[in-house]
């Protein structure tokens, strides 16, 4: 039983039908992870107690497996009365897990902004929030566009974990076809190719963003 191209093509519509879900989960998880990670990093910088606590939080998140977070949120939270739709649980799990990594990326990105920038902002009377929003964060983003993009691609590639809590996504739907037909090569290959194309699209988007951010820097 070889690879049947006709069957492979026949699986495309089914797998494609969940591409939207995968993309939405990826986009919201990226936004959630970046927002949460940035918040962690900002809290960490607010004082030495916060630094101590947030270092622990960030290390704890990074030291636990992503499936651990997904199972915990899916199975344990309802015991405490927190009931969320499974897709929301998936997005939350990926957001929390990757926020730990992105917090570290943000830390490096902020450390790489020249010290004089913060001083100039203060000398110009800008408040803390304004200094972060208008001076530090834009330069931080320029420093971290590439590593942040890597994590966005990682988040895309982590969406199959959500199959474990029955969220419809690409690899899961490919596997469903495989279980029904006992043919694994075609649906899994189609899913793999789709992940490749999506990853290339995300990478391309990140490159565009990077180019745009670096525009001001050319000499």
């Amino acid at each position: 039983m070889g690879f049947e191209i006709g069957f492979a093509i026949a699986t495309i519509p089914t797998i494609l039908s969940v591409v939207g879900t995968t993309l939405i989960i990826t986009a919201l998880s990226c936004a959630g992870a970046a927002g949460l990670g940035f918040a962690f990093e900002m809290i960490r910088r607010s004082g030495w107690t916060a630094d101590y606590v947030m270092r622990f939080v960030i290390d704890f998140i990074r030291a636990t497996p992503v499936l651990g977070w997904l199972y915990f949120m899916y199975f344990v939270l309802p015991f405490y009365g927190v009931r969320l739709p499974t897709t929301a649980v998936g997005i939350l799990g990926l957001s929390v897990y990757y926020s730990g990594y992105l917090a570290e990326v943000f830390r490096a990105g902020i450390d790489a902004v020249a010290k004089g920038q913060q001083e100039a902002a203060r000398a110009l009377g800008l408040g803390r929030v304004d200094a972060v929003v208008f001076v530090i964060a834009p330069q931080m983003l320029r420093n971290i566009a590439a590593p942040m993009g890597n994590y966005f691609v990682s988040i895309l590639k982590a969406t199959p974990y959500l199959a474990a809590i029955a969220v419809p996504e690409m690899l899961g739907s490919a596997f469903d076809i495989a279980s029904d037909t006992y043919r694994y090569a075609e649906p899994l290959t189609v899913a793999g190719v789709m992940f490749l194309l999506l990853a290339l699209a995300v990478t391309g988007g990140v490159k565009q963003l990077e180019r745009k951010l670096l525009k001001a820097d050319r000499r």
Binding site: A114, Q117, A120, A123, L126, G127, D130, P138, R142, A216
Partner: peptide, 30 residues
């Protein structure tokens, strides 16, 4: 401190903003 303006050895202009935006940032935000 609003009474004082400071000029640094290393300029410390904001590299991601145009010259005009460097000058207007604090006027607008503060």
């Amino acid at each position: 401190r609003r009474q004082t303006g400071m000029v640094f050895q290393s300029f410390n202009l904001f590299p991601h903003l145009t010259v005009l935006a460097n000058c207007t940032l604090s006027l607008r935000r503060v």
